[in-house]
């Protein structure tokens, strides 16, 4: 019998409390995150900026439950992710997290619909229900007409839309996006960011996004900077600097 893990002192949908992440390479210790605190309210849109190697992706991975902190707590959707076992973490991710990669990461041998259906293979839905849901998700991202196309038959922007459809198909509580516009031209990037706005505003999805692109960050409700594993500013400062 597995114990139910209940939220403890959680603020918002995502609550990162004094998180440190240290990587060990041989005898060397590299501190990637050093005492990070961050909160994202339910329905929030949080952007994380910073130079390469600042720890952005590491923090995103901790929130998405694909990595564990060395110390500190990460609460997401009511669960202390840092306490879950590997197996339970996988199950938890499939229900609560939608992950969007920079390079889309679609599976090349599957069509758009089949790619979107992948997370649904872990549910009890029938084949017909899985296809219906996948088409619904593709409809949301405006790609119903490309349902049976393979990734090689799609443009970069379209591939990223399919990846977003895959991320939202299980109706997760939190969407995490790692440089979602990093590999796109400005027009496609703009369309993807519009889609993020719609998911956030219309479907009330909580979004955590890592980006280098100030225009992408400008779409977020909160934007914070990381440098050398430390948060160096706050939302107010970003707004004052006119980033939004």
């Amino acid at each position: 019998m597995t114990a139910e893990i209940k939220p403890i002192h959680q603020n918002g949908m995502v609550d990162v409390q004094n998180v440190r992440k240290i990587y060990r390479r041989d005898s060397q210790e590299i501190t990637v995150l050093n005492g990070i605190d961050a909160q994202v309210a339910e329905g929030g849109f949080f952007a994380l900026m910073g130079p390469s190697g600042s720890g952005k992706t590491t923090l995103l991975n901790l929130i998405a439950g694909i990595d564990r902190p060395t110390s500190g707590k990460v609460f997401v959707a009511g669960t202390d992710v840092s306490q879950l076992s590997e197996g339970r973490l996988a199950g938890w991710r499939s229900v609560n997290i939608g992950f969007i990669f920079q390079f889309y990461n679609l599976i090349p041998v599957l069509t758009a619909t089949e790619n979107v259906q992948l997370p649904l293979l872990l549910t009890r839905l029938s084949k017909k229900e899985r296809r219906e849901r996948a088409l619904m998700a593709l409809n949301i991202v405006g790609l119903t007409d490309r349902a049976d196309h393979y990734p090689r038959q799609l443009s970069g922007g379209q591939e990223q839309r399919v990846a977003i459809a895959r991320a939202i198909v299980t109706d997760p509580k939190v969407l995490v996006a790692d440089e979602p516009t990093g590999d796109l031209d400005s027009k496609s990037a703009h369309e993807i960011l519009d889609l993020f706005d719609a998911l956030n505003n219309d479907l009330k999805k909580t979004i955590v996004m890592v980006t280098h692109d100030p225009r992408a960050a400008a779409r977020a409700k909160i934007c914070r900077h990381l440098d050398k594993g430390v948060m160096i500013d706050s939302e107010e400062r970003e707004l004052k600097d006119g980033v939004r």
Partner: peptide
């Protein structure tokens, strides 16, 4: 490897 990483990220357990 890429596909395995994607599947695991999507919630496919290691087993």
């Amino acid at each position: 490897r890429k596909e395995i990483a994607i599947l695991k990220t999507l919630g496919f357990g290691s087993g």
